[in-house]
């Protein structure tokens, strides 16, 4: 039996988007394979690494643990929505300047997570940043540079 697809209407990075998804497909699969937004990465596909992190209705979630069909009516922000026409977001700039990435697979998730933190708490402590980012794993860079980048971005955004 061919899989029946469901029509979904949603908002991604401020733009109305419609797509067809099989109920089994994760939001991550839909973003990457159907909507062609390949910024969100698949690291583990089971909720442990955070490479697939997106912002859904104001909360960060692992898009590998959301069904694509659940996006109906939702407001989704992915890493593609972080930079503006004028250039990189201060968090992206801070990641570059602080060498907070190597292979870059984890970076979209870290950017989406850090942005959500700084929007909620503009001046988080180092400990708070580390706890907030516990659901994002990096295999190459090590966490110090990433945490420093988030602190630098917080400073930049406050100035």
């Amino acid at each position: 039996m061919p899989a029946t697809k469901v029509h979904v209407t949603t908002t991604i990075n401020g733009e109305p988007v419609e797509f067809l998804a099989e109920p089994r497909q994760s939001l991550l699969e839909v973003l990457r394979d159907v909507v062609q937004l390949t910024g969100s990465k698949e690291g583990c596909n089971d909720g442990n690494c955070g490479a697939c992190t997106v912002n859904m209705d104001g909360r960060i979630v692992d898009s590998c643990l959301v069904l694509g069909v659940e996006a109906e009516g939702a407001d989704i922000q992915t890493v593609e929505g972080i930079a503006s026409a004028d250039g990189l977001h201060p968090i992206q700039q801070a990641f570059l300047e602080n060498a907070a990435l190597q292979c870059g697979i984890c970076t979209p998730g870290f950017l989406v997570s850090s942005k959500a933190l700084l929007e909620k708490e503009p001046n988080p402590s180092e400990e708070r940043i580390r706890m907030w980012l516990a659901g994002n794993l990096c295999r190459c860079t090590g966490y110090d540079k990433i945490v420093k980048a988030v602190m630098a971005a917080a400073k930049e955004m406050a100035s």
């Binding site: 909720g47 955070g50 992190t53 859904m56 909360r59 960060i60 979630v61 692992d62 643990l65 959301v66 997570s113 959500a116 907030w132 516990a134 659901g135 994002n136």
Partner: peptide
């Protein structure tokens, strides 16, 4: 979990 898990 972490923040992402707690969101759901």
């Amino acid at each position: 979990g972490g923040i992402q898990i707690q969101g759901r």
